[in-house]
Design a protein around this nucleic acid. Structure first.
Lengths: 233, 233
DNA sequence: TAATTTCTTTTGTACTACATAATAAAGGTG
DNA sequence: CACCTTTATTATGTAGTACAAAAGAAATTA
């Protein structure tokens, strides 16, 4: 038996809440609503759409979760600037994601690490480098697993923070658990946890005296075990 | 008058739907639910939580939007693998995002482009390069704005597709509108649309004969106007 | 005029009722 | 006995009503 889902379009099976959510989005777009603007009240929306207030509320609940609207008791609802990563965060759980997706995210973080250099060199300050060095000095005597991971997070997190890009920083911190999960998985499979020849300390030294290109080469070497695994598969 | 919101925590003002959503998440985690597992029925959840079915449905509606659960008429609800980018897509609208966030996303895409090379060189095939060349040949005679953008999307989109990373491809395609928006904005401000010296055709040539490092240098040059703007700000 | 109290309005929550679809069970037919 | 058809059964989807609560708006009073 062939897999029909490949050929035949999956049944939409849209509920009213789905439709209303879509319609509301269209409405907001069409009317060029901007953050701060007030929306019609729930009952008006329900009447206009010809559905129960219940359904409208389910749709609004979704938009509220995304941070797109904010509602106050009497004033009604106003559009707000959504938190673009908030919803992402809710869903990024290694335990419920499929192996393919986990691998994709793993690779995505590798790409981020490799692409980081140029932005980093535009924004980094001496103060940043000092703080980074402090982090490196902390990790010297810690080699056990939980501490190692903690410092890994501290070090790379600091790098992202140095780019001055708040979204970027948050994004990578959300990717990290998945990254660690995949790494753990691969370590269990292959037996040992290899580490690149370039250490965190080396990277700091490059940041001080080297170019963005040098830094990227160093990072590539630092991450080389991961890239080698990619090449093999 | 000082900005109090900096110092004083914003009022939570959680609704029951917010709380139920949280509790459901905790419940799923604690019970180690995996995709495919069936959830209790709405009424049972409502009774257990001591709220109305209405509230439970609002929370479930959110999870359903995120693709975390799927519900069928009699069978009940089952956990599913969420579409991690689906919710992201809903929120990524240049018109409702703040200037800071737009800039952050712009930079994020620059980082992706610069980090792309290594993954690309692991996965690229001759067939891919031929297809990429076909795209480049298409664009030769088109210089007007809408066509230029279209080819820009086609070319860079193909690069991401060549990485074999589906999530990565979708992700960048979602970032693109924001990227274009910011670029347009900056062009209007600075007057003219500069382009790097390295063209798409050059990049294809590098893909054929050069190293990942060569490709990255080419990409840096290709994107150089953007990086120069970053440096100036 | 300013402070206080009383509407008024809109969201938040609860409850009931019924339609609908999909499964399970029962029943009939060869 | 197996297979098909029909009939419950059950959980979700939708509608509608009712009321509490919060927060402005309006009215009242000092």
């Amino acid at each position: 038996m062939n897999d029909l889902t490949q050929d035949i379009a999956p049944i939409p099976a849209l509920t009213m809440a789905d439709v209303v959510e879509l319609r509301l989005r269209e409405y907001l777009k069409k009317k060029s609503f901007r953050p701060g603007d007030a929306l019609p009240k729930e009952q008006e929306l329900a009447d206009a759409l010809g559905v129960s207030r219940n359904v409208v509320r389910e749709a609004l609940s979704r938009l509220r979760m995304l941070g797109m609207i904010d509602t106050k008791k009497k004033r009604g609802m106003i559009l707000t600037q959504p938190d673009i990563l908030g919803s992402f965060e809710r869903v990024l759980d290694p335990l419920i994601l499929g192996q393919n997706t986990l691998q994709d995210i793993f690779e995505l973080r590798l790409v981020l690490e490799m692409g980081l250099a140029d932005l980093l060199y535009v924004r980094k300050t001496d103060k940043d480098i000092e703080e980074l060095e402090a982090i490196v000095n902390e990790e010297v005597h810690q080699i056990q697993k939980p501490f190692r991971v903690e410092h890994e997070i501290a070090f790379h997190g600091k790098l992202y923070q140095m780019t001055g890009n708040e979204t970027f920083l948050r994004f990578q911190s959300m990717l990290l658990p998945v990254f660690e999960y995949v790494v753990d998985f691969e370590i269990k499979a292959s037996g040992n946890a290899k580490v690149g020849k370039v250490t965190h300390r080396d990277l700091v030294q490059i940041l001080r005296t080297g170019s963005a290109e040098d830094f990227r080469q160093g990072m590539k070497e630092h991450l080389s075990p991961h890239f080698e695994r990619l090449a093999k598969s």
